[in-house]
C-alpha cells in the first residue's frame, strides 16, 4: 500500500498537465472571462446607480433652493401688497374725511343763511301782523260809546286849555 509505483506517478503528472491545458482552454478561460465580464457590468451598474443618485440629490437640492427662493419672493410680494393696500386705505380715508368735513361746512353755511332769511321774513310778517292787530283794535274801540265819550272829554280838555 505504501509503495510508490513510478509509472502511476508519471501517468498522474502527464494526465494532470494535459487536463490543466485542456481545461484552461475549454473551461477556465471562458468561465473566468464571463465572471469578470459580469463583475465588470455589475460594478458599472452600481457606479451608474451611484451617479444617478448623486444627480438626483443635486437636483433635489436645487429644487429645494428654488422653492425657498420662490417662497421668499411670495412673502415679499404679499408684504408689498399689504403695504400698498394700507397706504391706499389711509389715503381714501383721509380724502373721505376731508370731503365729509367740507360737506358739513357747507351745510352749516346753508343753514345759517336759511336761518337769517327766515328771521327777516319773520320780522316783516310780525310787523304786518302787529299793524293789522293794531288797526283792528283801533277800529273796534272807536266804534263804542265809551270811547266816544272819552274822545269828547279829551276834546273838551284840549279846547278848555286852549281858551285859558
Amino acid at each position: 500500500m505504501l509503495e510508490i509505483n513510478p509509472g502511476v506517478a508519471i501517468w498522474t503528472i502527464v494526465t494532470f498537465l494535459i487536463l490543466v491545458a485542456i481545461l484552461r482552454k475549454v473551461a477556465w478561460g471562458p468561465i473566468t472571462e464571463a465572471l469578470n465580464r459580469r463583475e465588470e457590468s455589475i460594478r458599472k451598474a452600481l457606479e451608474d446607480a451611484q451617479r444617478a443618485r448623486e444627480e438626483a440629490e443635486r437636483l433635489m437640492e436645487e429644487n429645494k433652493r428654488n422653492l425657498a427662493r420662490a417662497e421668499e419672493e411670495v412673502q415679499r410680494i404679499i408684504r408689498e401688497g399689504r403695504e400698498t393696500a394700507e397706504k391706499i386705505r389711509s389715503e381714501i380715508l383721509e380724502k373721505a374725511r376731508k370731503e365729509a368735513d367740507m360737506i358739513i361746512e357747507r351745510a352749516k353755511e346753508e343753514i345759517e343763511r336759511q336761518r337769517e332769511q327766515a328771521m327777516l321774513q319773520l320780522r316783516a310778517q310780525v310787523a304786518e301782523l302787529a299793524l293789522q292787530v293794531a288797526s283792528k283794535l283801533i277800529d273796534e274801540t272807536l266804534s263804542t260809546q265809551k270811547h266816544k265819550e272819552l274822545v269828547e272829554k279829551y276834546l273838551q280838555e284840549i279846547s278848555s286849555s286852549g281858551r285859558a
Binding site: 509505483n5 513510478p6 508519471i10 494526465t15
Partner: peptide
C-alpha cells in the same frame, strides 16, 4: 518504470473526462 494502465490511472482518466465534458458545458 511500469507504464501499464492501472485501476487508479483509469479512474483518473474517467475523472478527467468528466471534468472536461462538464466544465466545457458550463463554459
Amino acid at each position: 518504470i511500469d507504464l501499464s494502465i492501472t485501476k487508479h490511472v483509469f479512474f483518473m482518466w474517467i475523472v478527467s473526462l468528466i471534468l472536461v465534458v462538464l466544465l466545457s458545458l458550463v463554459a
